[in-house]
């Protein structure tokens, strides 16, 4: 009863949040500011309030961070489950678990003081505050999420298969890549989706490292602004202005993204448990 009550309560909070966001975004639709918001230029003092550059920036950053973090995370998991020496497994896992506890602001500061100047001097293009700097930093942030999810799944599968595969004379690499990983598809997908969600939702790294220029980046060395950083930057503006209202549109988009991520996860989990029963 108590659990049901708290479940209903938290569901109501999410619904209330959604209602609140829609309520505050509604004036944008009715007053025709909608088309203003979905345009390509953010020049508030010229009456242009486009948040499309921020949407593009968010998507580019999340995808590029995942492109870096996902292969590395997968590699770490394979290393743990048989490709690396056994005595290194515990230290590596310890390190990854430890990484989950590091506050985001630490990554941001290290990036501002070390990574950004390094990129600026070695590339000799732009200020260093860029899509590249942010995606490198963000990939370190989402790495533990990816490793832990895939690892949890592999921990259930690998021990079950190992005796059989070794008896059949299948090599470790073949066992992992042809048998274990395909049967860990739920973990692989969940890691990708949850990692993406985490990358989209992060505020501080984007705000500190990405440069925050509201533009479509031409190269990875250009500055970008994400939706989350945009909210953080404009939240202190005049609360009666269109600048301020754009905040709710950005919030609504972020909320819908994370909701989609969660629904997808739920769907995958259900499917995987169904397959687990039939197998």
């Amino acid at each position: 009863m108590l659990f049901q009550g708290s479940a209903v309560f938290s569901a109501l909070i999410v619904l209330a949040l959604f209602g609140f966001l829609v309520y505050f975004t509604l004036p944008l639709f009715s007053e025709g500011q909608f088309t203003e918001l979905f345009s390509w230029h953010w020049r508030p003092f010229h009456g242009e309030f486009g948040i499309l550059p921020m949407i593009v920036g968010t998507v580019l950053l999340a995808i590029s961070a995942m492109l870096i973090a996902y292969p590395v995370g997968l590699g770490i998991c394979l290393f743990i489950h048989g490709l690396g020496p056994t005595w290194l497994v515990r230290p590596v896992l310890f390190l990854v678990y430890g990484m989950t506890g590091i506050p985001t602001v630490i990554y941001g500061f290290v990036a501002v003081f070390l990574l950004v100047p390094l990129l600026r001097t070695t590339l000799a293009h732009g200020t260093g505050f860029s899509l590249l700097a942010a995606s490198l930093t963000l990939s370190i942030l989402v790495l533990p999420t990816i490793v832990l999810l895939i690892n949890t799944q592999l921990q259930q599968i690998v021990p079950r298969l190992r005796l059989t595969t070794e008896a059949l004379g299948i090599s470790r690499i073949h066992e992992l890549t042809r048998i274990s990983l395909p049967s860990a598809s739920y973990g692989l997908l969940a890691a990708a989706i949850l990692g993406f969600g985490r990358a989209v939702g992060d505020t501080l790294i984007a705000l500190m490292v990405a440069g925050n220029a509201a533009q479509i980046p031409g190269t990875a060395f250009d500055s970008i602004r994400t939706l989350t950083a945009h909210i953080a930057l404009v939240v202190a503006t005049d609360s009666q202005s269109t600048i301020y209202h754009s905040l709710f549109a950005a919030g609504l988009i972020l909320f819908m993204t994370t909701t989609t991520v969660n629904l997808l996860l739920h769907q995958i989990r259900r499917r995987s448990s169904r397959e687990g029963q039939s197998a």
Binding site: A213, A214, R225, L233
Partner: peptide, 28 residues
């Protein structure tokens, strides 16, 4: 950022309300 009072006065009195390029880095 646009919420900054510092930006507001610099933009009005030094830039005479002129443009700021979109590629400028924004610090909070």
């Amino acid at each position: 950022d646009e919420a900054s009072g510092t930006r507001s006065v610099f933009w009005k009195k030094c830039l005479s309300r002129g443009d700021i390029v979109e590629s400028a880095n924004i610090v909070p």
